[in-house]
């Protein structure tokens, strides 16, 4: 019944908002995932000593310590030194891992048994990494809130413009006996459709961008197999795909609710 040409910009702006929300949400999810991995995996002590002191230190640390094999060391170094890291000609240190915090007096004992030994506990960098991940998550949440607020503002402005443009028609329909809910429903339905269209476009754009980013930031992953839908889906975590699917629905809901509220508030000026 009501055409809303003023709403033409609405899908474009909503697409931009959803694109930003998807990127910030994906960053937030990635940060949360990393933080979980760090919390779960990093709870031990690492001891590095010169290779010739390895046997003495193994005896000192006892059976709880695990000495990394040459293959394990090569695997640790591979991201930095490539697949030939296991065939290095220079001597590598002996590396031990111990569960939990370093035992009391370990460092003093190591100084005597293996001068130059390095002891590092995961807690130090784990806390810093967790704080960084939490900050990224907080930024992502804040960004999502700002984006939602701005999106609602865009819908308010677009709906207000359309209401003003169609004031004469609305007054006539109002005089003919249309209830506020019916008129507001027309505007809300239109705003929802436009928001959904824009949000789907924004979500698809974000998916393509995230796939490209995943490709760029994962150079050590094995080469992708032949292009299939499953291979493509596997490039992003399921939570990100869920986010990309949910965002258009949220944008539609924001569009509908905001347009309803805006139209109903505007209609209250009529008798």
């Amino acid at each position: 019944m009501l055409k809303l040409p003023q709403h033409r910009l609405l899908p474009v702006l909503i697409a931009a908002m959803v694109f930003l929300a998807a990127l910030s949400g994906a960053a937030s999810l990635a940060a949360a995932r990393l933080a979980d991995q760090w919390r779960g995996a990093a709870d031990g002590t690492t001891v590095e000593v010169p290779e010739q002191d390895g046997a003495a230190v193994a005896a000192l640390l006892g059976p709880a310590a695990h000495r990394l094999s040459q293959d394990e060391l090569a695997a640790v170094l591979q991201p930095w030194l490539g697949k030939d890291a296991g065939r290095l000609t220079f001597a590598l240190p002996a590396v031990f891992t111990l569960p939990g915090s370093p035992p009391a007096g370990l460092e003093q004992a190591l100084v005597r048994a293996a001068p130059g030994a390095l002891v590092s506990h995961d807690t130090v960098w784990q806390e810093q990494a967790s704080a960084l991940a939490d900050s990224v998550q907080a930024c992502g949440t804040l960004t999502a809130c700002v984006v939602a607020f701005v999106a609602a503002g865009i819908v308010v402005l677009a709906t207000g413009a359309s209401l003003a443009e169609h004031q004469e028609a609305i007054e006539v329909i109002h005089h003919l006996g249309a209830a506020d809910g019916l008129i507001a429903g027309k505007f809300a339905a239109r705003a929802s459709v436009l928001a959904l269209a824009g949000a789907v476009a924004g979500s698809v754009s974000a998916a393509l961008t995230l796939l490209a980013l995943a490709r760029l930031t994962a150079p050590f992953q094995p080469p992708a197999p032949a292009f299939t839908l499953a291979a493509l889906a596997a490039r992003l975590p399921p939570a990100v795909w869920a986010l990309l699917a949910v965002l258009p629905l949220l944008a539609t809901l924001i569009g509908w609710l905001t347009a309803q509220a805006t139209a109903r508030a505007w209609l209250r000026r009529l008798p």
Binding site: M1, K3, E168, A169, V172, I173, H174, H175, L176, G177, A178, A179, D180, R268, P271
Partner: peptide, 25 residues
């Protein structure tokens, strides 16, 4: 109340000064 008025309006026919037809219909 404001909610009571639409049903009453639907029982009233109005010929406005200047017709006030919706131009796109």
């Amino acid at each position: 109340s404001r909610r009571d008025l639409p049903p009453l309006r639907r029982r009233i026919g109005i010929v406005f000064q200047g017709c006030r037809l919706l131009p796109h219909l």
